[in-house]
Design a protein around this nucleic acid. Structure first.
Lengths: 342, 342
DNA sequence: TTGAAAGCGCTAACAT
DNA sequence: ATGTTAGCGCTTTCAA
C-alpha cells in the first residue's frame, strides 16, 4: 500500500503541517494550533497526544503562513552602511537586543553607501513586511518610503537624517562634537588646523565640517581652502590629503579627522613623520587609548538602542509628531590632541 | 455611496493587494501577478494599465504570501556570537555579499555565547523558513537541528564545528596557527610562555591551547600549570590571569593570547609594565600594526564567504557528504613577538 | 494573451 | 473543550 505524496516535494522538503499533526494525534486542526501557541482550553491528555505527534513528525510551525494571517512579522529591518565597519557592529547589536526584548528578529543589510542599494534593500524589507525599519541613510531623498510608512511600516532614521520626508531621527551631535574637538586644538595653541572628512553629501561629514568652521570662527581664525579635504575614506585618498596639508611652507600643525576610518589612516600617516602633529578624531576606536589618540567619542550602541526603542514605541501605537533626538558626544583627551604646535 | 472597508484594518495598515490592483486596472488577478513578476504574455498596453494602477495604489507585493506558495524565502539566517565583536563584522558582511549575489536577504542574531539562545535563534529562523542557516555554534550539541536539516534547511557551521551531527564546516586552522605562534616565541628564545584563552568548552580555545602544547612539546619545553589560563574574556579576568603569570620568582617571559579580546586586554596590561614581555595574539586587530603587535591573522571575511558559498551550492542542489574546510592562518611579525626574554 | 479556481499553512470567528 | 469554516495574498494549473 504505497502512500503517495500528498504535496509536491519541491517545497520545504515536504515538511509536516498542523494538519498532519492533527491527523496523527487524532484531533482537530485548531487543537494543534492551540497547543503550539500555548492557548488555553486543551485538556492535559489531549495536549500530551498532540505534543507526541509534533515530536514524532518533527513539526515546526510555518511562520510565513502565520504572518500572512496575523499581519505582523515580528521582525524589523536595519539598513546600514557597512556591517564590517566597527562603528556599526555595536549599533546593530543594540538594535538586536531591543528587538529581542520585543520578540522580534533583525534582518539587516549593507547599502555600501549607495543610495540605490539603500532603496532596493529598504523596499525588499518592506516587501517582507517587516514591522519596522531602521535606516542609516546613504541617499538624501527618502520619499520612496512614503507609501510604506503610510501603509504602517514604522520607520526611524539613525546617524543621519531622512531626506525630504518627516520621520523620527536619532543622531549624534556631529556639529557640537567637531566644534568642541577643534576648540580643544585651538586651546592648545593651534592656529592652522586641517579637516579631513568623508564625502560632503554625507550629512555627518557636512555637519562636522560645519563644526570645524564654527570653532575656527569662534577663535577668530581664518580657514585656508587647502586645510579642508572631503572625499572617500579610502586610505590612499586620506593619506594624500594629509600629506598635502603637511607640505609647503605653512603646513597645518593639527588635524581633525572626520570619522573613524579617516582617523585610522591619519594616525598611520602621522606615525611615519618626525615633526609632531596634533590630532583629534571623531569616533572612538579600539586601542586608541594605548596609542594616545584624542577623540570625540559617540555612543554607537546608544544610537541603536534609542532608535530601536523609538521604533517599538511606534509599533505599540504611539501617535505623535516625528521627533529628532540628538545624543551628546564626549571629548576624550589622550595625548594626541594636546600636542602643542611645532 | 460610502465604500466600506473590505478588510479588517489591523493588518498592514490596509495595504492594497493584487486583487485591488486588478480591479483598478480592469484586468484579472493573474495578469497583475504576471506584470509584477516580469512574466511574459502581457501586451504592452495591458502592462501599462497595470503599472499605473500599481503606482496609484502604492502597491508592493507581499512576499510572505509569495513565500507560502513558492516554498522558498530567499533568505538565509546567520547565528553568531556577538555582532559587536570586530571579528564577526567582516564575517557577516561577507555572508551578506554572497547572499545578495544570490538574491537573498540575511537575518542575523547573536547567541551571546549561550547555547540555549543559539538554539532558540536557530529554530526561530527555521520557523521563518530561511532557506539556509549559517551557525557559529555556542553550544556543542546540534542534534536539535537534525529534523530541520532533514526537512531541507541547508546548514553550514563556521568558526567552530557542529556537535554530534554531520554537517558542512568551515574553520580556521586554530591548532596550526597557535602552534606556529608559540614556535615563533620559542625561536626568539622564550622557554616560559603563558597561554591566556577563552573558555575551554569553546572549540577554538581548546584547539589553540592544543597548538600551544604541541609547540612546547616540539621544543622539548615543559608546561607549568600556572602558565595556562582559560576562562571568560572579560577584561578583569584576563588582566588577573596575565598579572598572575608575570608574578612570582619565575614569571613567563612571553604570552600567547587566544583571541582578539584577550590580546586587547593583554596589550593594555603589558603597557603598564616596565619589564618587556613578548606577545603573540590570535586574530588580527585594527591598529595592531601601529602598536607593533605580532599576530596570527585569520581571514574572517574568507570564513564567511566560504561558508556562504558552500550554503548556496547546497541550495542549488549539491548532494555530497558534508565537508570540513580549514583555512590557513598567517603569522604577522610586528615587534611584540620578537622581543627576547628579559 | 488572459483569467478563474484551487490551495500554500496558518489563525479568527464561530459553531458544537 | 474541541472542531469547522473561511480566508490572509499570492502562485500554480488549467481552461478559454
Amino acid at each position: 500500500m504505497a502512500e503517495t505524496a500528498r504535496r509536491p516535494d519541491h517545497r520545504y522538503g515536504n515538511r509536516p503541517t498542523m494538519k498532519d499533526v492533527a491527523a496523527r494525534a487524532g484531533v482537530g486542526l485548531k487543537t494543534v494550533s492551540r497547543v503550539v501557541n500555548g492557548e488555553p482550553g486543551v485538556t492535559p491528555d489531549t495536549e500530551r497526544r498532540v505534543r507526541e505527534a509534533i515530536q514524532a513528525l518533527g513539526f515546526r510551525r510555518n511562520d510565513s503562513a502565520r504572518v500572512l494571517r496575523k499581519g505582523r512579522t515580528a521582525s524589523v529591518g536595519l539598513v546600514l552602511e557597512d556591517l564590517a565597519d566597527p562603528f556599526y557592529g555595536p549599533l546593530s547589536r543594540a538594535v538586536e537586543e531591543v528587538a529581542r526584548a520585543h520578540g522580534a528578529l533583525l534582518i539587516n543589510g549593507s547599502s555600501a553607501e549607495d543610495p540605490d542599494r539603500e532603496q532596493e534593500l529598504a523596499l525588499a524589507l518592506c516587501a517582507r513586511r517587516v514591522d519596522g525599519l531602521i535606516v542609516i541613510p546613504a541617499g538624501d531623498d527618502h520619499r520612496y518610503l512614503e507609501p510604506e510608512m503610510r501603509a504602517g511600516v514604522a520607520t526611524v532614521f539613525v546617524d543621519r537624517p531622512a531626506g525630504r520626508i518627516e520621520a523620527d531621527t536619532v543622531l549624534s551631535d556631529s556639529f557640537g562634537g567637531a566644534r568642541a574637538g577643534v576648540a580643544h586644538l585651538v586651546a592648545h595653541g593651534h592656529r592652522r588646523i586641517g579637516f579631513v572628512g568623508d564625502r560632503p553629501r554625507i550629512h555627518t561629514a557636512a555637519e562636522r565640517l560645519r563644526g570645524y568652521r564654527a570653532a575656527m570662527e569662534d577663535a577668530g581664525l581664518p580657514v585656508d581652502d587647502a586645510w579642508v579635504s572631503l572625499g572617500s575614506t579610502e586610505p590612499a585618498r586620506v593619506r594624500d590629503a594629509v600629506a598635502a596639508m603637511l607640505a609647503g611652507p605653512e603646513p597645518v600643525t593639527a588635524l581633525f579627522a572626520g570619522n573613524n576610518r579617516v582617523t585610522v589612516t591619519a594616525v598611520r600617516e602621522l606615525a611615519g613623520r618626525t615633526r609632531p602633529v596634533a590630532l583629534v578624531g571623531f569616533d572612538d576606536i579600539e586601542l586608541a587609548d594605548l596609542l594616545g589618540i584624542t577623540v570625540i567619542a559617540q555612543d554607537a550602541a546608544a544610537l541603536g538602542r534609542t532608535a530601536a526603542q523609538r521604533l517599538f514605541r511606534r509599533l505599540d501605537g504611539l501617535h505623535e509628531e516625528p521627533r529628532r533626538v540628538e545624543l551628546a558626544t564626549r571629548l576624550v583627551p589622550r595625548g594626541s590632541g594636546e600636542i602643542p604646535p611645532a
